[in-house]
C-alpha cells in the first residue's frame, strides 16, 4: 500500500516534468490540426519549442514608458502557471500539492497571473494593449463564476473539496458531467484565448485580446509569456480531461497517465477543429456565450443536488 502511495506521488512529480516538457507540444498539435483543415502542411509539431528556445537566447527591447511592473509580469505569470500545474491531478496521479480547497487556490492563482498580465499591458500606455486588457478582464470576470459553479457541481457529486479527490471520486456516465464538461470547455477556450473568443492568429491588433496584451514583449520575456500560456492550456486541459475521461481506480498509475495524455491530445485536436470550423464571434456576443455556459453549469449543479 505504502509503495503504491509513493508510486503515485512519484507520478505526481513526473507529471510536473511531463507538463513542463509537453505543454508546448499541445499548442503545436492545435496549430497542425488547423493547418491540415486548411489544406496546408503546417508548421512542425515542435515549432513552439523552437520559438521559445530562440526567444530565450535573444536580448530584449523595452518601451521607455514601462516600469518594473512590465518586467515582473512574465515572471509572476510563469510562477502562477507552475503553481497551478502542481495542483492539478493527471490520470490517477494526484496533484503534487493537493489539499482540501485547492480548487479555490487553483482558480485564484490564475487570477493573480491575469492581474499582472493586465497591469503590464496598461504599463505600456498603448491604446491597443489597453483595449486587450479591458476585454480580458471583462471575459474572465464572466468566466470565473462558470468555472466555480462547474467545480461546485463536481464537488457535490463526489463530496470532496480537493481537485485530486474530486476527480478520483467521479464515476461515469453522468448527465451532470457532460454538462459540466461542456461548460468548462467553453471556459477553457475563453481562458486560453481561442476561437470563438479570440483568434490567436489574427493580424489586426484591434480584434485581438490575449495577443495584443503582450505586443510589447520581446526576448526572454516573450518566451516566458508564451510558455506560461502553453502551461495554462495544459493545466486547464488536464482539469477537463480529469473530469471527462473515466478511469478505473484499479488502473496502474502509468496506464492512467497514458490515457490522460491521450485525452490531452484529443482535446488539442478538438480545439484545433473548433478553431477551423468556427469563426470568432462578435465581441458583443461573447458575454452571451459565457452566460450560456453558465446556464449549463448551473443546470448541472441543480441536477447534482437533487
Amino acid at each position: 500500500m505504502e509503495t503504491e502511495i509513493i508510486a503515485m506521488y512519484a507520478f505526481s512529480i513526473i507529471h510536473m516534468f511531463v507538463g513542463f516538457a509537453l505543454a508546448p507540444l499541445m499548442i503545436g498539435i492545435v496549430n497542425r490540426t488547423k493547418a491540415v483543415f486548411a489544406g496546408r502542411t503546417g508548421q512542425p509539431f515542435l515549432q513552439p519549442y523552437y520559438d521559445m528556445v530562440k526567444l530565450l537566447r535573444k536580448g530584449a527591447v523595452y518601451s521607455r514608458t514601462t516600469s518594473w511592473i512590465f518586467r515582473a509580469a512574465p515572471v509572476v505569470g510563469l510562477a502562477c502557471a507552475v503553481a497551478a500545474l502542481a495542483i492539478v491531478p493527471f490520470g490517477n496521479a494526484p496533484g503534487l500539492l493537493s489539499f482540501e480547497g485547492d480548487l479555490v487556490f487553483f482558480a485564484y492563482v490564475l487570477g493573480l497571473w491575469r492581474f499582472f498580465l493586465v497591469i503590464a499591458a496598461l504599463d505600456t500606455g498603448s491604446a491597443f494593449e489597453g483595449m486587450g486588457a479591458s476585454r480580458e478582464v471583462q471575459f474572465s470576470a464572466m468566466a470565473e463564476p462558470v468555472l466555480f459553479v462547474g467545480l461546485a457541481t463536481v464537488a457535490t457529486l463526489t463530496g470532496s473539496l480537493s481537485l485530486s479527490d474530486m476527480i478520483a471520486g467521479l464515476s461515469l456516465p453522468l448527465a451532470e458531467i457532460v454538462l459540466v464538461a461542456a461548460a468548462l470547455f467553453v471556459v477553457f477556450l475563453c481562458e486560453n484565448a481561442r476561437i470563438p473568443f479570440d483568434d490567436p492568429n489574427t493580424h489586426l491588433e484591434l480584434t485581438m485580446i490575449h495577443e495584443v496584451m503582450v505586443l510589447d514583449y520581446s526576448g526572454p520575456d516573450l518566451g516566458f509569456v508564451l510558455y506560461s500560456a502553453a502551461l495554462k492550456f495544459w493545466v486547464l486541459g488536464a482539469l477537463i480531461i480529469g473530469i471527462t475521461v473515466p478511469l478505473d481506480e484499479g488502473l496502474p498509475v502509468w496506464a492512467s497517465c497514458g490515457y490522460a495524455f491521450l485525452g490531452m491530445v484529443m482535446l488539442a485536436l478538438l480545439t484545433g477543429i473548433v478553431e477551423s470550423v468556427m469563426a470568432r464571434v462578435r465581441l458583443l456576443r461573447v458575454p452571451q456565450l459565457l452566460a450560456a455556459a453558465g446556464a449549463l453549469a448551473i443546470c448541472a449543479l441543480i441536477f447534482s443536488m437533487r
Binding site: Q288, A291, A292, G294, A295, I298, C299, I302, R306
Partner: peptide
C-alpha cells in the same frame, strides 16, 4: 434581451424546482 432571458430562464428553473 437574450442575455437577460438566459438569467430569467435560470430563475424560472429554480422556481419550477
Amino acid at each position: 434581451g437574450y442575455l437577460s432571458s438566459l438569467v430569467v430562464s435560470l430563475v424560472l428553473f429554480g422556481v419550477s424546482i
